[in-house]
Write a protein that binds this DNA or RNA. Structure first.
Length: 749
DNA sequence: AGCACGCCGACT
DNA sequence: GTCGGCGTGCTC
């Protein structure tokens, strides 16, 4: 029986089948193989081997050859890719692309020759020629007749340089050729230049003179091997960083909560030191690039550190992957891209800020990185630590009681300001009072606003008309400074009308929640002499003055958490807590509490007064932060959240997936969703396992109407079985699956 | 993801 | 009359 291999590519596709190269053995799982692909060739990963019938084998193309002697990826990793793809109901190739960020996009040199005595007139024997010499159909024909030999190797990194071909001669002797002569002499002295522009700069001659040298044959461009790219240098942080003295007594899976970001990292330093000294590498995952630099530079003060993130070029990653296994053990700090980095042996896996929303990959395989990391650590049988301000129900499923480590919370003084008992908007009378104090004492304040722009909308006070997006069922956000209405979902924008399009009156006013612009101008009005800074996605004021301790007020979205802490903050304001609490998601309350517990991370030393503006001052979250014993109150809150999730069958006590059907025609989306639910019933789904279809909370986005169905199952096998029922929904309807959705109401593009 | 094929608007 | 927009479909 012929042998076939299953080959995976870094593309949104499942593995494809090829025949083993003629006369060769299947090769190991996790090896790289070169195969014909459309009209060319490409690199894939062998993820399976099986026998196929002789008849079936006729339909398969033959692989061309192996790329490495040793497996490129250990077998454990290879199997893990497929497992993760299965759980997230995503093509395995997407997981490969996300987890193995190097090794599959190399340029290839593909050469062919005729087999002995094939007597093909358009292909030589005994001489390798570029495959591109032959038209694709010809090559395909000769392949099927077994008339052609093929070989492929990786093209080494090259760069184009300008080199001299012959010396100055009398054709360059004239006065008119002075510039060319000068450039050629310089080129002869230094052997080569990276470009004509570079040479012209160095020689101080116009670029046209250099080009003339090339045209006249005195110089030419050549491809030469280029040196490996430099890796980013991690500069040790100059700031003092309090590392703990003794290692924590960690379990195979642990959590570290409480304190603040730096304290949590500091508490783990002795463990990282111990591992590297024992000759094992450590992996420290961060949720996003913004946290990478801070983390890496703090650790670099005491440990050997390397970094990996999407910011590295392909060549830099290739170099790191090549060199990591050869060098001494390091602490590798990176985003999810670092998870499969070839550090062997690995002694400890740390997932920093495990509750951070950025760990949910928004595109590609919609994986939740902490979950993936936990399964991976389990497979490799190495210890794992989650750190987070707040212990989460998800952690409670993974971490045993002995594994739970806690640092006491920084206790802030909270003041809750009831917006329903104040007439001033958007600054309550309490807030005006404390802001004035901050101004008088020349201190700093941070105000966290729920959104960017001026207001949640622009509407008519007379008739209630509200400007909304032509593509989405959403109000257009009002950006006063740019004098524009903009959709925060699809980006559509338009000029605000001068009068109400509905009733014609000139009574258009900002509606709904205030954003950074509104708070900015409100603060300016009451404190005209205090510098006010704005920070959000649209607008970033330089903050050097604040970082140097100058007085001022920072009005920001949660973008403030991605900046270094400020030195002299006397006041933190959560401008409208309700916006966070009212996010229609079962995690909203926890996320709000997390936000409040992370507030100390905005400030350097002294703990400021924290003022929460809200219409629901007795909300449990407000009660928790005002409790005498904060640590106990948070514990009790998390217990309640766990109990609630258990009662309603939410994760982590069940597996949850959102299946979204979207179409330009509203009825087709609904119809497809209903068909899906009907098919689930035929599969034996129980009533409590299927919720929906329901129209998405924002009914239309970018011109697409969306319907969603939620799938819930206690056991993972059953969950996967139900999810396999998702089929193509027919033309005009897009189906998207999000396993373990973090934002239940997010539109899946 | 790329890449080809295919059908409707603004131009040499 | 053509260039080019991106919708749809395919890759062993």
């Amino acid at each position: 029986m012929p042998t076939a291999i299953e080959v995976l590519f870094p593309l949104p596709l499942p593995p494809f089948r090829y025949l083993v190269p003629f006369g060769e053995r299947p090769g190991p799982l996790g090896g790289r193989v070169v195969v014909p692909w459309q009209s060319g060739v490409r690199i894939g990963l062998v993820v399976g081997v099986d026998e196929v019938s002789a008849g079936r084998s006729l339909e398969l193309r033959e692989a061309i050859g192996w790329l490495d002697q040793e497996p490129f990826l250990p077998e454990i990793h290879t199997a893990f890719l497929l497992e993760i793809a299965g759980y997230y109901a995503t093509p395995a190739g997407l997981v490969l692309a996300a987890m193995v960020p190097t090794g599959f996009k190399e340029k290839l040199v593909h050469e062919i020759q005729a087999v002995k005595r094939a007597a093909i007139d358009d292909l030589p024997e005994d001489l390798w020629v570029e495959a591109a010499r032959l038209p694709v159909e010809k090559l395909e024909l000769y392949r099927s007749q077994g008339l052609v030999l093929e070989r492929v190797r990786v093209q080494e990194r090259q760069r184009r340089v300008l080199r001299a071909v012959r010396p100055v001669d009398r054709n360059l002797a004239g006065r008119a050729q002075a510039n060319q002569r000068c450039a050629l002499e310089m080129l002869l002295t230094y052997e080569w230049f990276g470009s004509a522009a570079e040479l012209s700069r160095e020689a101080g001659v116009p670029e046209s003179s250099v080009r003339a040298l090339v045209r006249k044959g005195y110089a030419r461009y050549e491809e030469v091997p280029s040196p490996p790219p430099a890796l980013p240098q991690v500069l040790p942080s100059e700031e003092g960083f309090e590392a703990a003295k003794e290692p924590l007594d960690l379990s195979i899976r642990s959590s570290l909560t409480g304190g603040n970001r730096r304290e949590r990292l500091g508490a783990l330093v002795p463990n990282l030191v111990r591992e590297t000294e024992a000759g094992r590498g450590c992996l420290v995952l961060v949720p996003e690039h913004a946290l990478l630099e801070e983390t890496a530079s703090l650790l670099a003060a005491v440990l050997p550190v390397e970094v990996v993130s999407g910011e590295l070029s392909d060549d830099q990653r290739a170099r790191l992957w090549r060199e990591l296994p050869l060098g001494p053990p390091v602490v590798l700090v990176g985003t999810y891209l670092a998870l499969f980095a070839p550090q062997r042996p690995l002694g400890l896996l740390v997932v920093l800020e495990a509750g951070n929303a950025s760990y949910k990959l928004a595109s590609g395989p919609r994986m939740f990185v902490p979950t993936v990391a936990a399964r991976f650590a389990e497979r490799l049988d190495i210890p794992l630590v989650f750190t987070s301000a707040l212990f989460s129900p998800e952690m409670s499923q993974l971490v045993s009681l002995e594994g739970r480590k806690h640092l006491a919370y920084k206790r802030l003084r909270y003041h809750v300001s009831d917006m329903s008992s104040t007439r001033s908007w958007p600054l309550s009378t309490d807030l005006v009072k404390v802001l004035k104090q901050v101004g008088e004492r020349k201190r700093q304040a941070v105000m966290l606003t729920p959104r960017r722009g001026f207001s949640g909308g622009l509407g008519c006070r007379a008739c209630g008309w509200l400007g909304s997006c032509p593509n989405c069922d959403l109000p257009l956000r009002y950006h006063r400074r740019d004098a524009i209405l903009r959709c925060h979902q699809c980006g559509a924008s338009r000029r605000p009308p001068d009068e109400c399009p509905k009733c014609g009156q000139v009574t258009l006013v900002p509606f709904r929640g205030a954003g950074t612009e509104w708070f900015f101008s409100a603060v300016k009005k009451i404190l005209p002499d205090v510098p006010v800074f704005r920070l959000d996605r649209d607008h970033q004021d330089p903050l050097e003055e604040l970082h140097q301790g100058e007085p001022g007020i920072l009005v920001a979205t949660t973008a403030a958490f991605r900046r270094a802490p400020l030195p002299d903050v006397g006041l933190i304001v959560v401008c409208l807590l309700d916006t966070h609490l009212n996010v229609p998601d079962f995690r909203a309350e926890e996320e709000t509490l997390r936000l409040l517990l992370e507030l100390p991370e905005l400030v350097k030393d002294r703990l400021p007064l924290t003022l929460l503006q809200t219409f629901s001052p007795s909300h449990p979250v407000c009660e928790v932060v005002r409790a005498k014993d904060l640590d106990a109150a948070v514990d009790a809150f998390v217990e309640r959240m766990c109990a609630r999730r258990k009662a309603f069958g939410y994760p982590p006590f069940s597996h949850l997936a959102k299946v979204q059907f979207s179409a330009r025609v509203s009825a087709s989306a609904l119809q497809a969703a209903e068909r899906f639910v009907a098919s689930l019933e035929i599969r034996g789904a129980r009533a409590e396992e299927v919720i929906g279809p329901t129209p998405a909370p924002v009914g239309r986005i970018k011109g697409f109407y969306a319907q969603q169905v939620f799938l819930k199952a206690a056991e993972v096998e059953r969950f996967r079985w139900l999810l396999e029922g998702v089929k193509d929904a027919g033309s005009g309807v897009r189906v998207r699956i999000d396993v373990d959705p973090r934002e239940v109401n997010e539109f899946l593009d």
